[in-house]
Design a protein around this nucleic acid. Structure first.
Length: 497
RNA sequence: GGCGCCGUGGCCAAGUGGUAAGGCAGAGGUUUGCAAAACCUCCAUUCACCAGUUCGAAUCUGGUCGGCGCCUCCA
């Protein structure tokens, strides 16, 4: 049973779904005006693990994540780029999907776009006007926050406590049309030569929050089992979604609210204006996406996730020690999996000792960790102990007369299956992964694989002649470039340290 | 001003009433022609500080100090 922190109640409580064995999950997706950044990566990995875990626990999940393709920022950026907002949005949507795929995030079941829900938006606004929760003003439509009892319940704030314009972003033009400073736009009128749609209140575009109310309701029904997004969306976005949806339908909007923490860079919030902003794809140049995936799991999903950044002379010289460490851990995972797969059948025996608890108990330990408010660091700790046991198993199989029990091997394989199902780790081809990491590092260090292979051949010859001095000279020469040689029964292999 | 979060070993980080997971780094060992990898052992009598509650507190309460987020762009 999954227990999750609920932002609404401030408590950890079981995720109770309306229909048994079906979870209706809505996650706020990206606004597609630019490439996904590290914060997006983290956020969507968190919800990906949520969905994976629910499914691994035997639950069906209807996973809906929207694409916000209608937004002022998209328009602004498109004008800068000299393209249409639709072109930009489509380009960025494709890029987003590609990045998510590389991070090994599952595709949601439905990815509704705002541009395809304008009719629904208009009709929800009409309902809100009818029910006197919204009013028209000069071609705009605003939601009247004071018309709703309990406005502010998610973020636990009283309207009168908020400091109007505390973030210094009051838009005076629109502010004077509002009856209350806290009222927010459902529809914003704009000139017909600008991007927009026709509506009962004239030409214009939807406000920021209404699209999620409409898309979630349309695809999952009036009441969601869980709604999630970044911590910054609690107020105003989710608060306003609640206001719109509950005033329009009269139903509870979502039974559970989940919010993930931010990514920080050197302990400061990541932001374009701060110059410490990284897109997912620029980091993919340096680090395996799956390493980044594991890195996001090293802290609890609600805590800040800090990226260490050692700024280089040029962007290419930037270093990210925490990502390097995470990538090494993923490489260890794949190396272990590769070793397991390489155990020859003749080493396997029936019977034998029962597998160690850390081995056979890993899937259950992982499930228990995730059941407890998606505790991924705890899950990784269990993974680490599991991998150690698998290596120990491989060590035993490698001894001169080494034999291991078939049931232990089966338990190890089951552990890897669980790891991929629950966390989305270790599901790639091990040797392809390891070779890719090695070759990328070699390239970065200016090491040519063909040269290394030649040196290895020279060294093999030297060793056959018992010329260990020459052999060691080659080892040292390569080591100076970061190349590590591994002598094994099958020959010599190499990695980049 | 309002709402909320955090302070655990050299670094990162779980743990939220029963006596400190895991990772990185470090030390020693098994193994190796030498290495690497892998594995084993060691590495916080202590959880910012001060009071209090309790048989018992890193975990609860109050206070102090320090860091941070949100208050209509934000994942």
């Amino acid at each position: 049973m999954l227990r999750l922190q609920d932002t609404m109640t401030g408590e950890k409580r079981p995720l109770e779904t309306q229909e048994e064995n079906l979870a209706k999950v809505y996650i706020c997706g990206p606004t597609v005006y630019d490439y996904a950044h590290l914060g997006h990566a983290r956020c969507f990995i968190v919800y990906d693990v949520l969905v994976r875990h629910l499914r691994a626990s035997g639950m069906a999940v209807e996973y809906v994540r929207n694409i916000t393709d209608v937004n002022d920022k998209i328009l602004g950026r498109a004008i800068e780029n000299g393209e249409t907002p639709t072109e930009l949005a489509e380009r960025m949507t494709e890029a987003f999907w590609e990045d998510m795929k590389r991070l090994r995030n599952l595709k949601p079941d439905t990815e509704p776009k705002v541009s395809e829900h304008i009719d629904g938006i208009v009709s929800m606004i009409e309902t809100l006007i009818e029910k006197e929760h919204a009013y028209e003003a000069d071609g705009d439509v605003y939601f009247a926050v004071r018309s709703m009892e309990g406005y502010g319940k998610l973020s636990r704030r009283q309207l009168d406590d908020n400091e109007a314009g505390a973030s210094g972003r009051l838009d005076e033009e629109h502010a004077k049309r509002k009856k209350d400073p806290a009222d927010f736009a459902l529809w914003k009128g704009n000139p017909e030569d600008e991007w927009g749609w026709q509506s009962p209140w004239g030409y214009g575009r939807p406000g920021w929050h209404i699209e999620c109310s409409v898309m979630s309701t349309q695809h999952l029904g009036e009441t969601l089992d869980l709604h999630g997004g970044g911590l910054d969306l609690v107020f105003p976005h989710h608060e306003n979604e609640i206001a719109q949806s509950e005033c329009a339908t009269g139903c509870t909007f979502s039974n559970h609210w989940m919010h993930n923490g931010f990514v920080e860079v050197n302990k400061e919030k990541m932001g374009k204006s701060l110059g410490n902003f990284f897109t997912a794809r620029e980091l993919f140049e340096k680090h395996e996406p799956e390493g980044i995936r594991l890195w996001t799991m090293t802290v609890h999903y609600r805590s800040p996730l800090n990226l260490d950044w050692e700024e280089g002379e040029t962007p290419a010289d930037n270093r990210f020690p925490s990502l390097e460490e995470a990538e090494r851990r993923v490489a260890y995972l794949y190396a272990t999996r590769e070793r397991l797969g390489a155990i020859p059948p003749k080493r396997l025996i029936d019977g034998g000792e029962p597998p160690a608890d850390k081995l056979s108990g890993f899937p259950a330990a992982l499930k228990a960790a995730l059941d407890d408010d998606l505790n991924m660091p705890k899950g990784l700790a269990a993974m680490q102990e599991f991998l150690k046991e698998v290596n120990e198993l491989c060590d035993r199989a490698q001894g001169k007369k080494g034999r291991v029990a078939k049931k232990a091997i089966a338990a190890a394989h089951a552990g890897f299956v669980a790891l991929d199902a629950e966390l989305g780790l270790g599901g790639q081809d091990p040797s392809a992964f390891l070779t890719r990491v090695r070759d990328r590092r070699a390239k970065a260090a200016g090491v040519l694989p063909a040269d290394v292979e030649q040196k290895i051949a020279d060294r093999v010859a030297a060793r056959q002649n018992k010329d260990f001095e020459a052999a060691d000279a080659i080892r040292n020469e390569l080591a100076a470039k970061g190349v590590e040689l591994h002598d094994g029964p099958e020959g010599t292999t190499w990695t980049m340290g």
